[in-house]
């Protein structure tokens, strides 16, 4: 095995050039090194001006999402040896404006996320003295998959609808809304209905399915969206056919 691999890093430094440029670095090819370790090596030993985000290095924080050889990946969970002999192209996450080098502006997602109210909503909050809201393992299984989301935004990066339609609410936000809609303790489904069923919500999705392919946590946002489409369509029919009281 060669002992080095080339990382082709797409760099954007607006004070120098208005367009991104590719810069190549030779980094050690070590068996347990992730792409993120290669970038850290560059930062520490080769070029301290390189900017990128990271935090936990163990696939939990969702900070280090980048485009690796064209695919959206968590760079802490993607290994250099899988790309040997290289070169490996590292670009910022697609579909987000680039601030600098590999750092993107995630403001759009942060604005959208709270609009689906991703927290447990109760009609009446029972007092703490009454104890926890209990839940059976079966009830937990209903939403557990969708609760694994780490907000890494790889699904937004993979989604062509989001690329073309920036107002689209997007995969993770809808999956997280479903995470609470399907939670037996939650009573807020009707509060999420308007935003989810708007033209910028579920109906903008054309089921490309790439969000689910990109998700590092197997959340399957595409399934969450299709399930909600069926729910919303059934609800619309009921609203149309049944009198107000019987819904």
């Amino acid at each position: 095995m060669a002992d080095e691999i080339t990382l082709e890093v797409v760099r954007y430094r607006p004070e120098l050039r208005i367009e991104p440029v590719v810069q190549s670095y030779q980094v050690p090819l070590r068996e347990h090194w992730a792409i993120l370790d290669g970038l850290t090596y560059i930062k520490d030993h080769l070029d301290g001006t390189l900017s990128f985000r990271w935090s936990c290095r163990m696939g939990i924080c969702g900070s280090c999402g980048m485009t690796v050889n064209g695919d959206p990946q968590l760079t802490c969970a993607t290994f250099l040896t899988d790309y040997a002999p290289g070169p490996v192209r590292v670009e910022p996450l697609r579909n987000f404006p680039v601030i600098r080098d590999l750092v993107v502006d995630i403001g759009d997602f942060m604005d959208k996320l709270p609009t689906v109210k991703p927290w447990v909503i109760r009609d009446v909050d029972s007092p703490v003295e009454e104890g926890e809201y209990l839940q059976t393992p079966e009830e937990l299984d209903e939403y557990k998959q969708f609760s694994m989301c780490i907000n890494c935004m790889l699904c937004y990066s993979a989604c062509p609808v989001y690329a073309l339609e920036p107002h689209f609410l997007g995969p993770a936000a809808i999956a997280l809304a479903q995470r609470y809609n399907l939670d037996s303790r939650d009573e807020g489904a009707s509060e999420r209905e308007d935003i989810l069923s708007s033209p910028e919500g579920i109906w903008a999705c054309t089921f490309v399915g790439e969000c689910s392919a990109a998700c590092p946590k197997d959340v399957d946002p595409a399934a969450a969206i299709q399930r909600y489409k069926l729910t919303a369509a059934t609800q619309a029919i009921k609203n149309f056919l049944l009198p107000r009281g019987a819904r």
């Binding site: 033209p199 489409k229 369509a233 619309a236």
Partner: peptide, 10 residues
């Protein structure tokens, strides 16, 4: 929201 999208989707 307009009710058309759910109907068209069905």
């Amino acid at each position: 929201r307009p009710a058309a999208e759910p109907l068209l989707w069905l």
